[in-house]
Amino acid sequence: MPRTYAFPLALGALLALAGLLVVVALRPASAPSREEVARQIAGDLRCPDCQGLSVADSNSGSAVEIRRQIEEQLTAGRSPDEVRQSFVDRYGEWILLSPTAPLAWLLPALVLLAAVGALTVWIWRARRTRERAGGSADPPVTELDRARVREEAEALDA
């Protein structure tokens, strides 16, 4: 197939996929079962007598008991947040595997955004400088570029 048709085809496929995802997302999802909710909570809690494992992943005595208590509290009609809180009341925030402070979530994102921003500015500013200098917007061809081209061409011919 000629490659020129591939890209329009790809655009069409992406559009169709977007439509499909919207349909899938909009279809009323069945509410998560109690087991799923319980597993979710257990996955967010730190097993007290393990090292860094979650209650969902651990088979220690405490983890088994915590899973039982989660089940018990959910059956009694408590909300997931209330269940989590009942363990925070006993162990403090230490028992939550995801820190609740917004900083813990924002800082990695901010650092990454700042780095991407700095990179973008660096690349665009250099382009401007070259343009203003009257040259091409793209970096000039160098010895290294030529060596590179020649190297690849040779590899094909060898």
């Binding site: 007290p48 005595g61 405490s62 088994v64 008991e65 915590i66 039982r68 208590q69 006993r90 162990y91 403090g92």
Partner: peptide, 9 residues
């Protein structure tokens, strides 16, 4: 079942 230990944290 470790209930008391959990209650004490």
């Amino acid at each position: 079942d470790g209930r008391l230990a959990l209650d004490f944290g």
